[in-house]
Structures are given as structure tokens and as C-alpha cells.
Amino acid sequence: MVNVKVEFLGGLDAIFGKQRVHKIKMDKEDPVTVGDLIDHIVSTMINNPNDVSIFIEDDSIRPGIITLINDTDWELEGEKDYILEDGDIISFTSTLHGG
């Protein structure tokens, strides 16, 4: 079980009730990965099913959304396989919204 903070930035908050910061408790047994977190977000936090495609494409985060784990690009942390620790901050920032 881990407690993490998730932030939706760059306009992504629009599909999460306009709330940028979410505290999330993952009840799953350790280890909990970022992949588990994403599944949790998709299944419980996106209210409108049509919005899922804004966040997910081909079973991963949509290209154009920057995923940071404690300010580090998730590409450098093993992407979905990263094992979450208490207090980690995961942020998703859209680069696709208006310029």
C-alpha cells in the first residue's frame, strides 16, 4: 500500500473535475507500480468514458503528455515498471492544449 500525490497539469485537470492535485491511496499489495496507478486513475477517476482517449492511447499515456515521477521524466525511471514509494509525486502535463 502506498500514498502518492498525483498532479494533472497543462489543462489535463479538465477531465478530472478541474482539480489539479489529487492525493491517492493505492490499497494494492506491494509492489505498486506506475502502471497500477494509471489503471487506477483510468478506472476510478475519469468520470466521462469519452475522456479516456484524452489520457490513454494504445494502453499507455498518450503521446504529447509529459509524465514526471518526482520531476524526473518517466522514460528515465522505467516508465510503467517504476515501483511507487510513499510520498512520490507523479505529474501528468499536457503539451497539446492551446499555446
Binding site: E7, R20, V21, N70, E85, G87, D88, I89, S91
Partner: peptide, 11 residues
């Protein structure tokens, strides 16, 4: 404006 949070877990 709310700034993005700074990480608390240091590597």
C-alpha cells in the same frame, strides 16, 4: 496560480 509541487522524496 498554483505552482506544481516540488518532490519530497529525494533520490
Amino acid at each position: 496560480f498554483t505552482a506544481p509541487s516540488d518532490p519530497v522524496n529525494k533520490p
